[in-house]
């Protein structure tokens, strides 16, 4: 029977292959490579899901409580969103921009200790699972918005050719895709913050106490709130919006990795 570690390593290998074939597709422009890339990432997602399921069975709780568990779930979230976006929009070249992000986060997970530890009292709350699982969807969605925005920036610089017109969507479509991913990510991030506040009130006695993680989630929320305001009210679109989405995702990465490694606070699990 497949163990969690085997499933995770299979997923890591398949994501690596997917990233490689997608990038080769972008370079060589051979359509078949993108088909392989798509299959690799889907197979990777299946193994990743199995790995997470195995860990859940082993620990009796969802894998959302340590750096390793969140990282692997985060990578799974990006992967899930990518497969969904690719299926919906039928854009194969997106893989060349999204799979490296999946790979980076999966590698980050691989560098963390995967040791199973009993759940400490502070983490024994039903709010943990609502709070962290919505964070997976939020971060995953923002990651896809970032990938689409990088694609936008590159597409914008490329000369129009058969390849760009056949395999890279129009800039307006990419812009809209990024916007949709950000709206979903923002919606989820808001739920993350609200559920976190409810949980903080139950665990620490205050629903908001400017813990570094809270503060950076708030900073990220403001960054995307400004994006949505200027976009919806001032028609801020295209290149500026694409760069902004990339910066927004850097803030997400800092909130997740930077805060846990550099800043000390209540969220040091």
């Amino acid at each position: 029977m497949l163990s969690e570690k085997q499933g995770f390593l299979m997923a890591l290998m398949l994501y690596s292959l997917a990233a490689l074939t997608y990038i080769m597709f972008l370079v060589s422009k051979k359509l078949k490579l993108s088909t392989y890339g798509s299959w690799f990432v889907r197979a990777g997602l299946i193994f990743h899901t199995l790995a997470l399921a195995m860990r859940t069975i082993e620990t009796s709780y969802l894998p959302l409580t340590s750096q390793y568990e969140f990282a692997t779930s985060f990578a799974w979230g990006i992967s899930l969103f990518f497969v969904g976006f690719e299926w919906k929009y039928k854009i194969r070249s997106l893989g060349a921009f999204a799979t490296p992000l999946i790979l980076i986060v999966t590698f980050y997970a691989a560098l963390q200790s995967s040791e199973i530890k009993p759940l400490m009292p502070a983490l024994q709350s039903k709010w943990l699972f609502v709070h962290v699982s919505t964070a997976i969807f939020s971060y995953g969605s923002f990651a896809i918005a970032c990938a689409v925005s990088i694609m936008f920036i590159i597409r914008d610089r490329l000369k129009e050719s058969d390849f760009t017109s056949n395999h890279m969507p129009q800039l307006s479509i990419l812009d809209n895709m990024s916007y949709k991913a950000i709206t979903f990510g923002f919606f989820m991030l808001t739920i993350v913050i609200i559920t976190g506040a409810i949980w903080a009130e139950r665990a620490w006695g205050r629903y908001w106490q400017w813990d570094p993680k809270e503060t950076w989630s708030f900073i990220t929320w403001i960054i995307y709130a400004i994006y949505l305001h200027v976009r919806l009210n001032r028609g801020w679109k295209n290149k500026k919006a694409a760069w902004y989405a990339v910066v927004g995702f850097l803030s997400i990465l800092f909130t997740y990795i930077g805060v846990n490694t550099i800043l000390a606070g209540y969220h040091s699990y």
Partner: peptide, 19 residues
């Protein structure tokens, strides 16, 4: 909205400094 965004940016900068 401009004033609102100005305030948000100001709050954002102070929040970054606080960390």
């Amino acid at each position: 909205m401009g004033f609102g965004i100005f305030l948000l940016v100001f709050i954002l900068i102070l929040s970054v400094i606080s960390t």
